[in-house]
């Protein structure tokens, strides 16, 4: 329409930041805080938002999404909490081992795929382990809005109960903690029973927990629209495979420890993305032809699309077989 249509950029807008604090919380989890490099306030965000942190790991670019857990009303800094994953692809290890106060990094503008339903009469938060992070921001926002909420937080042990003390101290009566090693479990059916009409439930944690909450709520007659979840799937390693990118006319190799999206980016081809976790739909790519099997790991495409091989989400999904051609 206007003279110079601008092409959409890959990923959200970027912000240059300086690491302002690195706070180890327990054996596995460390908090990182960022301030804007230019000294100004960071963009306002809504509770539930994440940012994608760009890591320069010996020439290799890693992009990992983390929920922003700091108070949305305080934009002097952002905080994320990173759980070390010794078996993972190295992003969390890089953060734990290499990132120091004063380092300069690049993060994206906040993107919210897990926002609060502000109409809700009451919010019920259910967290498992490091899934507590988005709720830290949500609780701050609910406290400010004066809304009703309660948190049910399941952790492995007292020692690994990230932010348990702080939460219990600040919000007695609203925070309920369950310790696995003491055989405590969230009594989900009881807690869903008797909630006022218009209550919304939010769950963030391991996949099993998310599925359990959805299934239990559904069985108790809760509408699907009142149950919200966020799960970032991490790209899993897999057998290397080869892909032809038709538009760019390139053949690329996807290594064992990189995602298809990362391999596309490494070859210099720009591809859209936001969450890099199979949830937002931005990187959806058409399949031109294939001979083999897809390993779909996203939460975006529907079952039909997964079955007929017409599309793939390159941020998390892989391929095993003879040949794959993509419209990219």
């Amino acid at each position: 329409m206007s003279a110079a249509p601008q092409k959409a950029k890959a990923g959200a807008e970027k912000i240059d930041v300086t690491v302002s604090a690195v706070v180890p919380l327990n054996e596995l989890v460390t908090r990182f805080e960022f301030k804007a490099k230019d000294g100004r306030d960071l963009p306002t965000f809504s509770a539930g938002a994440h940012t994608v942190v760009q890591m320069n790991d010996q020439g290799r670019t890693r992009l990992n999404p983390y929920s922003i857990m700091s108070d949305p009303a305080d934009t002097s800094h952002y905080a994320i909490s990173v759980r070390r994953d010794d078996e993972g692809r190295g992003g969390s290890l890089f953060m734990h081992r290499n990132v120091k106060v004063g380092d300069e990094m690049t993060i994206t503008f906040p993107v919210n795929l897990f926002s609060l339903d502000l109409r809700a009469r009451k919010q019920v938060f259910i967290a498992g382990g490091i899934g507590i992070t988005p709720f830290m921001a949500m609780i701050a926002q609910m406290e400010r809005l004066g809304g009703q909420w309660e948190l049910h937080y399941s952790v492995r042990t007292e020692a690994l109960g990230t932010y348990v003390q702080e939460l219990s101290y600040k919000h007695p009566g609203k925070v309920h903690v369950y310790y696995d090693d003491q055989s405590q479990a969230i009594a989900l059916e009881d807690l869903l029973d008797g909630q006022p009409l218009g209550t919304n439930v939010y769950v963030c944690g391991p996949k099993g927990m998310i599925d359990w909450v959805h299934a239990t709520a559904s069985a108790a007659g809760w509408p699907d629209a009142n149950v919200h979840s966020e799960e970032f799937t991490k790209p899993q390693p897999g057998k290397p495979f080869q892909v032809r990118l038709c538009k760019s006319d390139k053949v690329i190799d996807v290594g064992e420890h990189e995602s298809l999206l990362e391999a596309i980016e490494r070859s210099g081809v720009e591809a859209p993305f936001l969450c890099r976790g199979g949830a937002c739909g931005q990187c959806e790519t058409d399949v031109v032809s294939f001979d083999g099997d897809f390993i779909h790991r996203d939460h975006w495409l529907d079952d039909d699309q997964h079955a007929n091989g017409s599309k793939i989400m390159p941020c998390v999904s892989r391929f095993v077989g003879k040949s794959l051609e993509l419209d990219r």
Binding site: L192, D193, G194, Q195, P196, L197, G198, T199, A220, G221, W222, N226
Partner: peptide
């Protein structure tokens, strides 16, 4: 009735 109702109401 709606004001008094709980989640799960059909």
């Amino acid at each position: 009735v709606l004001a008094e109702a709980k989640m799960g109401l059909q």
